[in-house]
Design a protein around this nucleic acid. Structure first.
Length: 636
RNA sequence: GCCGAUGUAGCUCAGUAGGUAGAGCGCGUCCUUGGUAAGGACGAGGUCACCGGUUCGAGUCCGGUCAUCGGCUCCA
C-alpha cells in the first residue's frame, strides 16, 4: 500500500498508509494526545480527526490549547444547540449558527419566540445529547442529494444555502443521526467533549441580517473548555452589568433621562462637573497643538445640507424644522459649518494648517430601538475638530495627531488598538490621490511607532481613515478616536487657499475626534473605572465627616481651605453617626473621607480615610492638600 | 424602524383566582452627639406609564400609544 509522509510540528516525520485518518497520527504519538485531540491541522487546513491522509503533509494535532480550538468547539456547540432545538421543536427551521467572539448563536424560524423556559429545556436537552457522546460525522453528498435531503426535512433555508454556497459535492455533518447540518466544518469528534456551555438569551434576528427577510429567533450561548473558564466568563458578564453606566450614572447622580426627551441626557451637577473637567482637559491638550475653538450654529437651512451632501444621504437621520416656509435641519455633524467658516475669508498657504475645535451639540434622529444610555443618544457633543491642510501637510498633521491620541489615552490609563482603513470598492476621487493619502497615513503610523492593522476596503467613500479601539478594564472594545481624510467636502464647498505659486489650491480636511463623543467617552470612563473615578476626575474629591455637631465649624474651616486650594469638597454635617456617613461616602465612591473630631480640631488636622486603602491616620490639613494636589497632577 | 420582554412610591421589588395597593432602602420630624461600611421611634409619599375597551367592579383581562431593556440593522 502507498505510504504518505507526515511531518510533525517538532520536525520529525512518520510514514503512514495512505488514507489513514489523522486521528491515527495522534494515536501514534501518544494515547493521551489521541484522547485530547479535537481536530487537526493538515498543511494549513483545519480538518476533522477522521480526515484521511492522501498525500505527504505537515500535521499538527489540535487540542484545546490550539489557536483554532475554541472557535471550533463553539461551532460544534452551536450544532448541538440546533440538534436540541430541532428535537424539541420539530417544526423549527434552521438558519445559520456560527461561533462568535464570546460564544455562538443559532438562528431558527419558529412559530413563536422562545421563552426562558424553552431556553432551559433546550440547554437540558443539549446536556442530554452531550452526555450520550454522539459522534459528529462528516457526510459528503452531491448537491442534488443534499438539496433533496434538506427539502424533505423541511429545511428550505438550508436548501437555499446549499444552492448559493455549495459546490458539486457538499459537506454536511450529522450528530449521530439526530441532526444534520450543511457545514464545511470541521467539528469535534463527538458531543461528549462539549462540557462547559450555557444557553444565554434569545432575541429576534432576520434571515441574512436583513429586516426585509423573514424574522427568525436567535439563541445565544457560550462555551468554554472548562467550567472554570465558563464561570469566569459569566462572572465577567455580571461585572459588566454592575459597571453599566446607566445604573452607576443614576446611583452616582451623574445624569438622568426623561421619556419626553428620549435619547437626550439631563446632566446633573456631578455629571456636569465631570463633563466640564473633560472639556477643560481637552482644551488644555489642543490649544498648545495650534487648535482654535469656534462655535457654530445648531440649525442650518436645507441649502447647507444640500451642499454638503447630507440632504441626499443623511436626511432620515436629521431633525428637520421649518421656519417661514423654509426647511431647516439640526446639525448632525459640525463639518459643513466649519467649511463655511474656512470659506469666510481668503486663506493663504501661510495660514495652514487651520485647526477648528468645536464642542457644539449635535442631533441625530436615531431609530428608537437603538437608543442606549449615553452610548447611543440622539443628542451629544463630540470633541470634534477639522484640520485644513495642504496635501503635503497630511503626513505631519496625522503624525502629530497620533502622538496626541497616545498621550490622551495614557492619561486615562486606557489601552487601545489602531486600524488603518483603506479604499473601499465604491469611492470618490482618483486612485492616485487615494494611494498617496494611504501612503501618508502609513508613514505617519510608522513614524509614531504605533502598532496597527490594515482593514482593506474599510475606508469612507470620501477618504481613508485611522480608527482607535479603546480596551477597557474588563477587556471590552470601544470605538473612540478617529482620524479621517476628506477630499470631497472641500470640493463640494469649493474651498481654496492661495499657494506659493499665487494660484488657488484645494485644501484637504482631516476630521478627527479623540474622545469620540463626550457622552460615549463618559460612559466608557464610568464602566472602565466602575464609577470609582481617579482623584482628578472625581466629581466630589473629598468629603468631610464631622463626628458630632460641635465639629461642624472646624469641618467648614477645613472645607474652605481645601476649596481655596482647588479641591472639590463636600461637608456631611447631618446628624448621623460617622459609620453611617462613611458607608454612604464609600458607596458614592468618593476618593477621600476626612474625619474631623476633637483630636483633629485641636491639631489642625484631618483623619484621612481612602476609599480603597482605608484609614490612613491623622494628617495636617496642609499636608493633605499638598498630597491630594500632587495626586491630581499625576492623574493617578 | 423591526422582533421580544418590561413599565406598581425617589430607588430595588412584592401584589396570590379581576373586589379602588405593600416591603426594604431613601425622605421628613423627634430622640440619640455617636471615632472609620447602616442607632431608635413616629410619619409623609402612589391618577399602579398613558389612552381606550370588556366588566357591577381592572394594577390584574383585551387593543393602541409612549418609554426602557435584550437583540437585529445602524452608529460618536
Amino acid at each position: 500500500m502507498d505510504q504518505v509522509t507526515v511531518t510533525l510540528p517538532d520536525g520529525s516525520t512518520r510514514q503512514m498508509p495512505m488514507g489513514t485518518p489523522v486521528r491515527e497520527v495522534a494515536a501514534s504519538i501518544s494515547p493521551r494526545l489521541a484522547a485530547a485531540a479535537l481536530a487537526a491541522a493538515v498543511g494549513d487546513r483545519v480538518v476533522d480527526l477522521t480526515h484521511p491522509l492522501e498525500e505527504d503533509a505537515s500535521v499538527r494535532i489540535i487540542t484545546k490549547d490550539g489557536p483554532e480550538a475554541l472557535e471550533l468547539y463553539r461551532h460544534s456547540t452551536a450544532h448541538l444547540l440546533a440538534a436540541a432545538v430541532t428535537s424539541l421543536f420539530p417544526e423549527a427551521q434552521c438558519g445559520i449558527g456560527p461561533p462568535t467572539e464570546d460564544g455562538f448563536f443559532y438562528d431558527f424560524v419558529v412559530d413563536r419566540p422562545f421563552v426562558p423556559e424553552d431556553l432551559e429545556a433546550i440547554e437540558a436537552k443539549m446536556r442530554e445529547l452531550a452526555s450520550l457522546d454522539l459522534a459528529y460525522e462528516r457526510k459528503m453528498m452531491s448537491k442534488a442529494e443534499a438539496k433533496r435531503y434538506f427539502a424533505d426535512r423541511g429545511e428550505p433555508l438550508k436548501v437555499q444555502l446549499i444552492e448559493e454556497k455549495g459546490g458539486p459535492i457538499v459537506s454536511c455533518y450529522t450528530i449521530d443521526g439526530v441532526f444534520m447540518d450543511f457545514c464545511t466544518g470541521p467539528h469535534v469528534p463527538s458531543s461528549g467533549v462539549l462540557k462547559a456551555f450555557r444557553v444565554l438569551t434569545s432575541s429576534n434576528a432576520y434571515w441574512k441580517g436583513d429586516a426585509k427577510n423573514q424574522p427568525m429567533q436567535r439563541i445565544y450561548g457560550t462555551a468554554f473548555f472548562t467550567n472554570k473558564a465558563l464561570e469566569e466568563h459569566l462572572t465577567r458578564l455580571e461585572e459588566a452589568k454592575k459597571r453599566d453606566h446607566r445604573k452607576l450614572g443614576r446611583e452616582l447622580g451623574l445624569f438622568t433621562f426623561h421619556k419626553w426627551a428620549p435619547g437626550a441626557t439631563f446632566w446633573l451637577a456631578h455629571g456636569t462637573t465631570l463633563w466640564n473637567l473633560l472639556a477643560e482637559y481637552m482644551r488644555a491638550m489642543l490649544f498648545p497643538e495650534g487648535y482654535v475653538e469656534i462655535r457654530t450654529p445648531l440649525v442650518f437651512n436645507k441649502q447647507l445640507w444640500e451642499t454638503s451632501g447630507h440632504w441626499e444621504h443623511y436626511r432620515e437621520h436629521m431633525f428637520l424644522v421649518e421656519s417661514e416656509g423654509e426647511p431647516y435641519g439640526l446639525k448632525a455633524m459640525n463639518c459643513p459649518g466649519h467649511m463655511l467658516v474656512f470659506a469666510s475669508e481668503v486663506r493663504s498657504y501661510r495660514d495652514l494648517p487651520i485647526r477648528y475645535y468645536d464642542q457644539s451639540v449635535l442631533h441625530r434622529n436615531e431609530a428608537s430601538g437603538v437608543l442606549a444610555g449615553l452610548t447611543r443618544a440622539r443628542q451629544f457633543c463630540q470633541d470634534d475638530a477639522h484640520c485644513f491642510v495642504t496635501r503635503e501637510q497630511i503626513g505631519d498633521e496625522v503624525e502629530r495627531l497620533l502622538r496626541l491620541v497616545q498621550r490622551v489615552y495614557a492619561d486615562f490609563r486606557l489601552d487601545f488598538s489602531v486600524e488603518l482603513s483603506t479604499r473601499p470598492e465604491t469611492f470618490l476621487g482618483d486612485t492616485k490621490t487615494w494611494d498617496q493619502a494611504e501612503h501618508q497615513l502609513e508613514q505617519a503610523l510608522e513614524a509614531s511607532g504605533q502598532a496597527y492593522v490594515v482593514a482593506e476596503g474599510q475606508g469612507n467613500f470620501y477618504g481613508p481613515k485611522i480608527d482607535f479601539h479603546v480596551i477597557d478594564a474588563i477587556g471590552r472594545n470601544w470605538q473612540c478616536a478617529t482620524i479621517q481624510l476628506d477630499y470631497q467636502l472641500p470640493e463640494r464647498f469649493q474651498l481654496k487657499y492661495i499657494g506659493t505659486d499665487n494660484a488657488e489650491h484645494r485644501p484637504v480636511v482631516i476630521h478627527r475626534a479623540i474622545f469620540g463623543s463626550f457622552e460615549r467617552f463618559i460612559a466608557l470612563l464610568i464602566e472602565h473605572y466602575a464609577g470609582a473615578f481617579p482623584l482628578w476626575l472625581a466629581p466630589v474629591q473629598t468629603i468631610i465627616v464631622p463626628i458630632a455637631d460641635r465639629h461642624g465649624d472646624y469641618a467648614e474651616t477645613v472645607a474652605t481651605r481645601l476649596r481655596e486650594a482647588g479641591l472639590r469638597v463636600e461637608v456631611d454635617a447631618r446628624q448621623e453617626k460617622m459609620g453611617y456617613k462613611i458607608r454612604e461616602a464609600q458607596l458614592r465612591k468618593i476618593p477621600y473621607m476626612l474625619v474631623t473630631g476633637d483630636r483633629e480640631a485641636a491639631d489642625n488636622a484631618v483623619a484621612v480615610r481612602h476609599r480603597t486603602d482605608g484609614d490612613q491616620g491623622a494628617c495636617a490639613v496642609d499636608a493633605f492638600i499638598a498630597s491630594a494636589l500632587a495626586e491630581v497632577r499625576r492623574r493617578s
